[in-house]
Amino acid sequence: MKTTLTIIGLSLMPAWALAQMTPEGLWRNIDDSTGQAKAEIRIVSSPQGVLTGKIERSLITSSEPNCTACTDDRKDKPKVGMEIIRGAKKSGDGNLWESGKILDPENGKEYTLRMTPLEEGRKLQVRGYIGPFYRTQIWQRVQ
């Protein structure tokens, strides 16, 4: 009986590890210039597999709690609760999500998005592109 439970437990383990290799979940974004945690972002998937992400909690005090620099439907809306990731989809069979957009609510700029889970899903490489130029952040999963 004990052996059977061990085998069942081990057979379920790869599914758990695979589930962690997704951007879905709660992440702490780290400022690429200061190294400080700025916010917690929750990324969720729609039934069609499209990812969105909202700022769930701010970890820094901002002099401007609203996105005054935004130019779309998010203009002058509160940053906390704001959807900053839209339309990301899994690309092929690998651990890459792209084709979406990510907003930097500090400057109102929207970037083409690419996300790649790292270190068995404990970290997430988030890269935003404008043309050939890009900016990369490594986010940490909140347990």
Rank of each mutant, 00 (worst) to 15 (best):
T3P: 06
L5W: 14
L5F: 14
I7Y: 09
S11R: 02
L12W: 10
P14Q: 01
P14H: 07
W16D: 03
W16E: 05
W16K: 05
A17M: 13
A17G: 06
A17I: 07
L18S: 05
A19I: 03
M21L: 10
T22F: 03
P23G: 08
E24F: 03
R28F: 02
N29C: 00
N29M: 01
D31F: 13
D32I: 12
S33V: 15
Q36Y: 10
Q36R: 10
Q36H: 11
Q36W: 03
A37I: 00
A37Y: 01
K38S: 13
E40I: 05
I41V: 15
V44A: 15
P47N: 12
G49R: 03
V50G: 02
V50C: 06
G53Q: 04
K54I: 12
I55C: 09
I55H: 05
E56F: 06
R57Y: 09
L59V: 07
T61Q: 11
T68R: 07
T68I: 08
D72S: 06
D72T: 10
R74K: 11
R74V: 08
K75N: 13
K75W: 13
K75R: 15
D76V: 07
D76F: 09
D76Y: 09
K77Q: 15
K77H: 12
P78A: 07
P78Y: 12
K79T: 06
V80Y: 12
M82S: 09
M82V: 12
I84H: 02
R86T: 14
R86D: 05
G87R: 08
D93C: 11
N95P: 07
L96N: 11
L96D: 08
E98L: 02
S99C: 09
K101M: 14
I102G: 01
P105E: 11
G108Q: 05
Y111A: 00
Y111N: 02
T112H: 07
T112D: 15
L113R: 01
P117A: 10
P117T: 02
P117K: 01
P117M: 13
E119Y: 05
E120Q: 10
K123P: 02
Q125G: 04
V126R: 01
G128Q: 06
I130R: 02
G131Y: 03
G131N: 01
G131S: 00
F133P: 00
Y134W: 03
T136C: 05
Q137E: 13
Q137I: 10
I138F: 00
I138A: 02
I138M: 03
W139Q: 01
W139G: 02
Q140H: 14
Q140C: 04
V142M: 12
Q143N: 10
Q143T: 08
